[in-house]
Amino acid sequence: MKKAEDRYNILIVEDNPGDYVLVEDFLEETNLVRKLHWAESFTHAKTQLSEKEGDIDIILLDLSLPDKDGEELIREIQLYSKNIPIIILTGYPDADFAIKSLAWGVSDYLVKDVLNSTVLSKSILYNIERNKILVNLRKSEQRYSDLFHFSPLPMWVFDRETLKFLDVNDAAIEHYGYSYEEFLQMDITQIRPKEEKEMESLNKSLEIVKKPHHNLFHGEFCHIKKNGQKITVEIRSNSFNYKGRPAEIILVNDVTDRNRHIEAIEIQNEKLKDIAWTQSHVVRAPLARLMGLVKLLGEGRIEESQKRNFYEFIQHSAEELDGIIKGVVDQSQQIKINIDKK
C-alpha cells in the first residue's frame, strides 16, 4: 500500500456505468487512489468541482456526455477545473482532435480500447507532477507580471525596431493619462516633445539601446502627458526579449516636482546670500560709525562745541541701523518657497 500522501483524489466524469467500472478497476490496480469521485454529467461534474474545490488532484473526462460534449465540454469544464490537470478518456481515436485538445490545455488523451492500469497509472502520475511544475511556472510568471503591472513607478516595454509600445503598467496609464489601448496604438516618440533637440536626445539614447546587455541610466528627458502637460523624467532601461521581439523595458521617475523644489531652494539660497552680504556691509556700517563716535566721546577728545553735532550723528546712525534691521526682517519674511503647479 502506498502512503496516503502518494495517492490522489480522482474525479471520473463518465455517463456510461460500464466504462466507469472499467476505469475504477484499472485504478484499483494502480494503488494511486485515495478517494474516487464520480460525476455522470457535465452539470454533476460542475457541482462536484465547486463543492470539492482544491480537493481533487486530477480529472478523467469522457468526451461525450448527455448534456455536453467535444470542444465545448473541454472549454467549459476548464472554467471550473482551474489548475486541475484533465486526462481525456474517449472511445474514438481521433488524432487531430487529440492534438487540438492538448493545445486547449488538456494534459493527456487516452483511448479506452487500449487502456490498462499501467497506461493509466503512468498518465496520472506524469500529468499530476508535470502540472505542478506548470502551475508553479505560471505563478512565477504572474509574480513577474505583477511586479511590472503593480509597480508604483510608470514602466513600459517598447519594440526596439518599431518603437511601438508593447506593454504599459497601471502607473504609466495613470501618470500619462492614456488608456492601455491608446498606448498600444502609439510609439514612444509620441510622448516626447517634437522639438529637434528632444528628438536628437531620443535618437542618441536609442543608439545606446541597440547595444545588447546594458542596464542604463539615460538621464533626464522631457515627456508630454495626454493633457499636454510637460514633465521632466529620469529614465532607466534594460533590453530583453518580449514575446519574440527585441524590446526595451523602461522605468520612469517623474522628477518635475523634485526639480521645482531644488530650483526654489536655490532661489532661496541666493536671497540668503544677499542677506548675509547686507549684514556684513550695510548693517555694520552705521554700527561701526556708532562705535567710532562713542569711543571718541568717551576719550574726551571732542570739544564742547562739537559735542552737539556728535549726538546728532549718533542719533542718525542709530536710526539708520534701525531701518536696516527692519529691512532685513522684511526681506527674510519674503522668502517663501513658491512651487506653483504649472
Binding site: 561701526a288 560709525r289 567710532g292 563716535l293 571718541l296 577728545r301 546712525s317
Partner: peptide, 11 residues
C-alpha cells in the same frame, strides 16, 4: 562714501 567714517578717520 560715508562722511562720518571719513571724519572719524580724520580725527
Amino acid at each position: 562714501d560715508d562722511d562720518i567714517s571719513v571724519m572719524l578717520t580724520d580725527i
